[in-house]
Simulated assay, not measured.
Amino acid sequence: MSNAFRPISDSLHHSLETAAPTHSAVADLPPYADADCAEADTLTSPFLEALDLSPAAVLVQQSNCVRLDWEDLPPFAVVDRQFEQWGVLFANAIAICPSNPAYPPYSGRMAIMGAPKGGWLEAKFVRPVKCVSTFVTSSRRTVLSAYDAENRLIASAETPAANLAESQSACPPNALLQVRSVDIHRVTFHAFDGQFILDDFCFCF
């Protein structure tokens, strides 16, 4: 996965001009971070259709988006402050390379899981973000909750049911969960005593 970090306005403008986007290199960027959220095909419809892509609107959009795909994390590493320079810290998270086919990553080989406490994971942002999205595969219905600086719930989203691969669930694996607000300081994931993995975690300032 290539590395990039640029304003989303530049990303959108570039993706409109060329069918095969290239990425500008930036020095000292960790190889596991990719800021080009707009290039994830599954995100394109719900994530970008809500944006005003008129020329005037694109000029004033100065958000930066970061996508984490976990690929350079070693299996079973505790995930906490590795991405602090990108603006996020995690709690109760470990990196895994799933051996159970019921939990397929969205991309690559790696994902993160809520552990050692099962069914829960938290991400705190260094400064407020506007939206958070990720792909979730879980043994139970999973709820994504967003909170402001006063710890008030300001947005939430959830999967309708468990969505393990090769199950009878109507919800396929790697369901997209996303929340939007102007002042998201942290998000939590709860699977109600179930197990879940997250992949391609994306947030925009």
Rank of each mutant, 00 (worst) to 15 (best):
M1V: 15
A4C: 13
R6Q: 11
I8N: 09
S11W: 08
L12I: 15
L12Y: 06
H13Y: 07
H14C: 05
H14E: 08
S15T: 05
A19W: 13
P21K: 05
A25V: 14
V26L: 05
V26G: 03
A27L: 06
A27Q: 07
P30M: 10
P30L: 05
P30E: 02
P31W: 01
Y32G: 11
A33H: 02
A35C: 05
D36K: 00
A38Y: 06
A38S: 04
T42H: 00
T42A: 15
T42D: 01
L43P: 02
L43C: 10
L48Q: 10
L48I: 14
E49A: 11
L53T: 09
L53Q: 06
A57T: 07
V58I: 13
V58E: 10
L59V: 06
L59H: 11
V60A: 11
Q61F: 06
Q61S: 10
Q62C: 12
S63F: 05
C65S: 14
C65L: 01
C65Y: 02
V66R: 03
F76Y: 03
A77M: 09
V78M: 07
D80C: 01
R81D: 12
R81N: 14
Q82E: 14
W86M: 15
W86Y: 15
L89K: 14
L89R: 15
F90R: 08
A93F: 13
A93C: 15
I94R: 07
I94T: 07
C97D: 15
C97V: 15
S99K: 10
A102D: 05
P104A: 04
P105V: 12
P105T: 06
G108C: 07
G108F: 13
G108T: 07
K117D: 07
G118N: 13
G118V: 13
G119H: 02
W120Q: 02
W120F: 12
E122H: 01
F125N: 06
V129M: 09
T134H: 02
V136D: 00
V136A: 00
S138T: 08
R140E: 15
V143I: 13
L144G: 03
S145D: 15
A146H: 03
A149E: 14
N151T: 13
L153T: 08
I154K: 04
I154M: 08
I154H: 00
A155D: 12
A157T: 00
E158I: 03
E158C: 01
T159G: 10
T159E: 04
T159A: 11
P160V: 14
N163H: 04
N163T: 02
L164I: 11
A165D: 04
E166Y: 12
S167I: 11
Q168L: 00
S169F: 03
A170M: 08
A170D: 08
C171T: 06
N174K: 09
A175F: 12
A175N: 02
L176M: 11
L177Y: 09
V179I: 09
R180T: 09
D183T: 09
I184P: 09
I184E: 10
H185L: 08
R186E: 14
V187I: 14
F189Y: 13
F189P: 05
F189R: 02
F189I: 13
H190N: 14
H190L: 14
G194D: 06
G194Y: 00
G194C: 04
Q195L: 08
I197Q: 03
D200P: 06
F201C: 10
C202H: 10
